[in-house]
Nucleic acid binder design. Structure first.
Length: 821
RNA sequence: GGGCGAGUGGCGGAACUUGGUAUACGCGACGGACUUAAAAUCCGUUGGCUGAAUAAGCCUUGAGGGUUCGAGUCCCUCCUCGCCCACCA
């Protein structure tokens, strides 16, 4: 008998698939399209481990299932090659990032092929290829021309080790996300994308996409919509005005002081000429620095200083002192807040500096209200608290008045509504070599001038050393050949921008390039983008829940506004997979030396098919799981059973072709269950159903051998088709052994027929008082009365009914009887 | 502090959409066949307690209560764990 040898069959079929091109996607319109995508990986120096592989296995299974179901599937793969690790490696070893990446990419690709994934490799892209980043640069200029890319001098996170600026999001608890060193602040001129202009749409359009709730929540939190009121007030004794913002404004007459953030740009002007000017500015500067370095950790330690200025309260509380406070945030709202006793932090601050307070909001309980009146604690319940001021709302519950209070404030011209977002503009400048150069020329006369389309791409020059200059500019600044150029506008001497773009810029449109990867006239043709996009199934890790997904959505909306695409959300359906952890429950990493590589398992003889099954069978795919070293033996054993059964069938003598109800029933049951589970992405139970089906076939074989040859042939080809999306190699090999023409992967997905599932006898569960007492078998067409009689006659039931009278009989058709005594 | 999610055998998990046989499927363990032996493979058994029993009974889905003929599933209270966001007024 032919033996199951994955080492031999898997590479053989991979070659056949590649040569026959069965996974090639084309724009033919005879079938509905389906675009399945996993995030394109960064080809790191370390090998891919089983944790990475899970994501691709999920995408591949979805892709294959849809192809067999009659969809025209696009399932592409590419490389997100820009980024710090390649550059750091280049600095360390002196090899160019281009070269290191080329090797890594080759290895990654080989690993993916080895797993039997059905990528259309003719669409392979690489974000570091000038033919690709030419269009990343083109999009930068599109944003620039639309006023969405701008330069600003600003205080930015600076990593002293990587010698580069970091985005807000790349600072985690005060340390660099890559190297873990403590970050500092540094003033630099930077390029930004104005994502804040799209904040409302980025939030609202989340309603239109089918994403997991947790990711939507994360995006909403990041965007941070809050509706509040802006009060405008004159600064007493000056001709200045300030605007304060508050999202909890219900008790607006309680405000007795104002706080401004220490790093607020208006502060210098505010205190100019005031007696406290020098002292205040010194304090603010120190506080800003301290806050930058420490982060907002110490809740108890609020600090502040009086600015010497007052506002005339627009709601009539007289002169309110303005304080600089350590807890005030310059980027939220207007950066200035009117404060009252009804906020925890304001309360603590006022207590510390003996600022006057005035409660207007009280709990219903009289005793508690008295405590609030005596400033014994901070009462901040804007929902249930009872307002005592102003007169119109006296005695009413604050939470129910929100809309009325807004109307009141607006009608009396005391304040205007204002929506504030937490999200800040996207800093895309990188003072790094290994990124797409920002296509701008700085001219002493004309300022920042876009590189003309005809001169794109601005190609990264080969360099001898990749060390950052350390002065805030990228290594590109050292290449005079690169820097010195002429102004496209006036033709005079000019210098190129030396910053490169954040890698997230490259990944903000790659899913569009897959629709038309070799176009050198355009980023993509309108028709092809229209044909394939948006992505129907996007599978990714939670690590992309905020940054990548938000940026890609932003670019998509800009392109939509520019009129080059006809949709405004890039990913219709998005699900995030759970992580595979090492058997010890820790994250797999090279440094912990606990990674498990598929290549090693393949060498051990398991085969890609067993690994793929294990990736999905181990747990629901969107749930984290520890890799099980023994577990893979189970999926391997299952495949062996499929193999052996098929080979035994082939060796069995040709015999009669009796119609076998048991075989057909098992087969159609399996078709139904596996199809449903695949549509619901319940891979683990789909695999369980395949195992169950195989076990049933083994039992039938033990009972009667392969007598019903025609039905057996149907049962086995069905099994292989159902198995094909999960274990593509073995199913293809056995498909051929069974004499089928063509590839199992482009065969039509089987459909079940209910008529084979109907049996002439059914099982009825009999309960007495809700407890299971018997299991009876009755003809499928038995009447309720007959079933009740049969149930009553069962000795186990009689025993429990005892002499008690049956008060009630509950009958669930075809299923259950419950006697209540 | 805010948000999201989860607690089921020795372990990963199933049943949750629609309240109706809890523990599918796999791992591990135990017993057997094959073998000089081991591995591999095949066949059994495997939630707990009482019991000689593959007789019978009782108990069991984090804890407690409720609704119901019937609750892992619905409702309330509480406990534990995980993830994300957090001086965002």
């Amino acid at each position: 008998m032919k033996r199951y040898n994955p080492k031999e069959i898997e590479p053989r079929w991979q070659k056949v698939w590649h040569e026959s091109g069965i996974y090639k996607a084309s724009e033919h319109k005879t079938k509905p399209k389906k675009y399945v995508l996993e995030y394109f990986p960064y080809p790191s120096g370390a090998a891919m481990h089983v944790g990475h592989v899970r994501n691709y296995t999920i995408g591949d299974t979805i892709s294959r299932f849809n192809r067999m179901r009659g969809f025209n599937v696009l399932h592409p793969m590419g490389w997100d090659g820009f980024g710090l690790p390649a550059e750091n490696y280049a600095i360390k070893t002196g090899t160019s990032p281009q070269k290191a990446l080329e090797e890594n990419t080759k290895r990654f690709k080989q690993q993916l092929i080895q797993m039997g994934f059905d990528y259309d490799w003719e669409r392979e892209i690489n974000s570091t290829d000038p033919a690709y980043y030419k269009w990343t640069q083109w999009f930068f200029l599109m944003l620039f021309k639309r006023g969405l890319a701008y330069q600003k001098e600003s205080s930015q996170w600076w990593c002293p080790v990587d010698k580069t600026v970091l985005a807000n999001e790349q600072v985690e608890n005060g340390v660099c996300w890559r190297c873990g060193s403590t970050v500092e602040k540094k003033m630099l001129k930077q390029w930004f994308f104005k994502i804040t202009e799209y904040a409302d749409r980025l939030e609202k359009d989340l309603d239109d996409v089918d994403w997991s709730p947790s990711i939507k929540t994360m995006q909403r939190n990041w965007i941070g919509h809050s509706k509040g009121m802006t009060f405008t007030a004159p600064v007493a004794g000056t001709d200045m005005q300030i605007q304060t913002f508050s999202a909890h404004f219900e008790a607006f007459t309680a405000d007795t002081f104002v706080v401004i953030a220490p790093d607020h740009p208006f502060l210098t002007e505010l205190v100019r000429g005031a007696a406290e000017e020098k002292k205040v500015l010194k304090f603010a500067k120190e506080m800003t620095k301290k806050r930058d370095l420490q982060g907002y950790t110490d809740e108890e330690d609020v600090e502040g200083i009086f600015t010497g200025r007052y506002i005339d309260d627009p709601v009539g509380n007289g002169k309110l002192p303005i304080w600089v406070a350590s807890y005030a945030l310059s980027h939220y709202g207007t950066g200035i807040v009117k404060c009252s006793v009804h906020d925890e932090r304001d309360f603590r601050f006022a207590k510390k500096y003996n600022i006057q307070l005035k409660p207007v909001l009280f709990p219903a309980d009289k005793e508690e209200a008295e405590k609030v009146r005596n400033l014994e604690y901070c009462y901040s319940d804007m929902k249930n608290g009872i307002l005592m001021e102003p007169e119109v709302f006296k005695g009413q519950i604050a939470g129910s008045l929100r809309e009325e209070i807004i109307k009141y404030l607006e009608d009396n011209q005391l304040a205007t509504t204002h929506v504030s977002y937490k999200i800040r503009d996207w800093l895309i400048s990188r003072q790094r070599y290994w990124g797409a150069p920002i296509p701008i020329i700085h001219c002493p006369k004309d300022g920042a001038v876009p590189v003309p389309d005809g001169q794109l791409p601005v190609v990264l020059p080969e360099m001898e050393s990749y060390e950052p200059s350390g002065d805030g500019r990228s290594p590109l600044a050292r290449s005079s050949e690169f820097v010195n150029t002429t102004c496209p506008k006036c033709g005079g001497q000019a210098e190129r921008e030396t910053d490169t773009m954040d890698g997230f810029a490259c990944s903000s449109w790659y899913f569009l390039r897959f629709a038309d990867p070799h176009n050198d006239e355009k980023a993509f043709s309108d028709e092809k983008a229209k044909f394939w996009l948006p992505v129907d199934d996007y599978i990714g890790g939670a690590e992309h829940a905020v940054m990548h997904l938000l940026y890609a959505r932003f670019w998509t909306k800009v392109m939509h506004d520019e009129g080059i695409i006809n949709f405004h959300e890039p990913f219709s359906k998005l699900r995030n997979h759970g992580m595979i952890l090492a058997p010890d429950g820790q994250k797999m990493s090279k440094s912990k030396n606990n990674t498990i590589e598929p290549g090693v398992l393949i060498t051990q003889g398991y085969g890609a098919d067993s690994i793929r099954l294990m990736e999905l069978f181990i747990a629901p795919w969107n749930q984290a799981a520890n890799w099980s070293v023994e577990g893979i033996g189970g999926t391997h054993r299952f495949l062996m059973r499929v193999w052996t059964l098929t080979q035994e069938f082939l060796e069995a003598p040709e015999a009669g072709s009796a119609d076998d109800a048991a075989i057909l029933r098992s087969a159609h049951k399996a078709i139904k269950k596996v199809s449903e589970d695949l549509q619901n992405m319940q891979f683990n139970t789909a695999i369980a159903a395949l195992m169950e089906y195989t076990n049933e076939l083994y039992k039938i074989k033990a009972d009667q051998g392969f007598a019903a040859k025609i039905d057996w042939r149907f049962a086995l080809t069905t099994l292989l088709q159902l198995l094909a999306p999960f274990a593509p190699h073995i199913s293809e090999e056995l498909w051929k052994d069974l004499g089928k023409e063509g590839s199992v992967h482009i065969s039509a997905w089987p459909e079940h027929d209910e008529k084979y599932l109907i049996t002439d006898k059914i099982q009825i569960v009999v309960q007495v008082n809700g407890k299971l007492r018997a299991n009876i078998e009755v003809p499928a067409n038995a009447t309720e009365a007959a079933i009740v009689d049969a149930a009553k006659a069962d000795p186990k039931v009689t025993q429990h009914l005892d002499k008690n009278e049956i008060r009630k009989t509950i009958y669930v058709p075809q299923k259950l009887i419950n006697f209540v005594t």
